[in-house]
Every structure is written in C-alpha cells, then in structure tokens.
Amino acid sequence: MQAPGRVILIHGASSAGKSTLARAVQAALPEPFTHLTFDHLIDSDALPRGPEWLKVRGQVFDGWHRAVAAFGASGADVIWDHIIESPAWHSDLRALLAGRDLFFIGLHCDLAELERREAARRDRKPGDAARDAAHIHAGKQYDLELRSEDGAEANASRVIAACQARRGVSGFFA
C-alpha cells in the first residue's frame, strides 16, 4: 500500500500570487510535486457558466476537495493553491486530509496590489480579491506566512527551508 503523499497548501486571496508561488516551489523542489489549482478547471472551460454555475458550485468544490485529497492518498506529492472560503470548508478539509504530511502557507498581499492584479487579469470578478482579503486569513494557524511582494523565487526558498526545518503537526489541523 502506498504511503500518502505530502501536501503543500498555499492559501491566500484571489490574485495574491498563489499559482506563481506554487510554480516557483515546484521548480525548486528536488522531488516531483504536482501543482493543483482550481484555475486549471476554470481555464479549461470545464465548468458551467452563469446561473448554472451557481446551481452546482457547492458540489463542484466538494468534489474538487475530494479529488485533491485523492491525489495525496495515491502517494502523489501535491502543491495545492487554494482559497479556503469558509470555516466549514476548513473543517471538511481537515477531515479529508487528516494524517497527511501537510505544510500550510498563508500568502498575504496588500489590498491595493491585489486590486491592481485583479484588474490586470480580466478573468476575475471585480471585488473578489478585496472580499477574500477581508476574511480568509482570520483564525488560520499557518506553518509559514509570506508576503507576495517579496517575490516568488525568494518565497520559494523560504518554503523549502521551512518545510525542511519543521517539526510536529501542521497548524492546519489546529
């Protein structure tokens, strides 16, 4: 039976630079890690749009959480960039990822920069970044907190060093 894979979970507001950091960490790690992000589903046009999306959003995210957990259960090492939108999601994810070697990263970004990035991307609904920034970090116990303004390469080095130096159970499960 395969041992569960490791999970590096990067959490931050929309447009905080989670995917950029995930790709930098993936490139810097000596072992292969699979980068998973909900943006892959969005970019592939796999999801319904408009009112149809609202009808299935809860089920899709529940399935997404289970799919990412299944990657780890199969033994795959994963870098997952995600926005944990609610305490209920956090609770569900704790149960799905229980017993995993998980490293939880909080990626912070100034609101003005989030809004600038959001506007430049044009694939985000205006206001999502500000909404996220106002609440998603509340009550979280991270294993490492980073500022996206420090740059992806510098932050990737910090992630790798912190992963190697860590001891004990992740703050994610606290």
Results as ranks from 00 to 15, higher is better:
residue 123 D to H: 13
residue 134 A to I: 10
residue 157 S to M: 10
residue 149 E to Y: 04
residue 104 F to V: 02
residue 127 G to P: 02
residue 147 R to E: 00
residue 121 R to M: 05
residue 139 G to D: 08
residue 135 H to C: 13
residue 123 D to I: 05
residue 133 A to Q: 09
residue 107 L to W: 00
residue 155 N to I: 01
residue 131 R to T: 12
residue 150 D to A: 13
residue 150 D to N: 14
residue 135 H to Y: 15
residue 121 R to H: 10
residue 147 R to C: 00
residue 144 L to K: 00
residue 131 R to S: 13
residue 152 A to K: 03
residue 148 S to C: 08
residue 135 H to T: 15
residue 123 D to F: 03
residue 161 A to P: 04
residue 104 F to C: 04
residue 131 R to A: 11
residue 166 R to W: 01
residue 125 K to C: 15
residue 168 G to P: 09
residue 142 Y to P: 03
residue 108 H to V: 07
residue 125 K to M: 15
residue 128 D to G: 02
residue 157 S to T: 12
residue 121 R to K: 11
residue 134 A to C: 13
residue 167 R to A: 14
residue 133 A to L: 03
residue 158 R to L: 13
residue 170 S to N: 09
residue 170 S to R: 11
residue 119 A to C: 00
residue 104 F to A: 00
residue 138 A to I: 14
residue 154 A to D: 13
residue 106 G to E: 01
residue 170 S to T: 03
residue 127 G to E: 11
residue 162 A to R: 06
residue 125 K to A: 15
residue 166 R to E: 01
residue 115 E to K: 10
residue 149 E to S: 12
residue 168 G to T: 10
residue 153 E to A: 14
residue 153 E to S: 07
residue 164 Q to I: 05
residue 136 I to L: 08
residue 160 I to D: 09
residue 148 S to Q: 11
residue 120 A to T: 05
residue 148 S to A: 15
residue 131 R to C: 05
residue 106 G to H: 03
residue 169 V to P: 06
residue 127 G to Y: 10
residue 138 A to H: 15
residue 159 V to I: 06
residue 138 A to D: 13
residue 130 A to V: 12
residue 125 K to D: 15
residue 124 R to M: 05
residue 134 A to W: 11
residue 122 R to L: 13
residue 145 E to F: 07
residue 143 D to W: 01
residue 123 D to L: 04
residue 119 A to E: 11
residue 162 A to C: 07
residue 121 R to A: 10
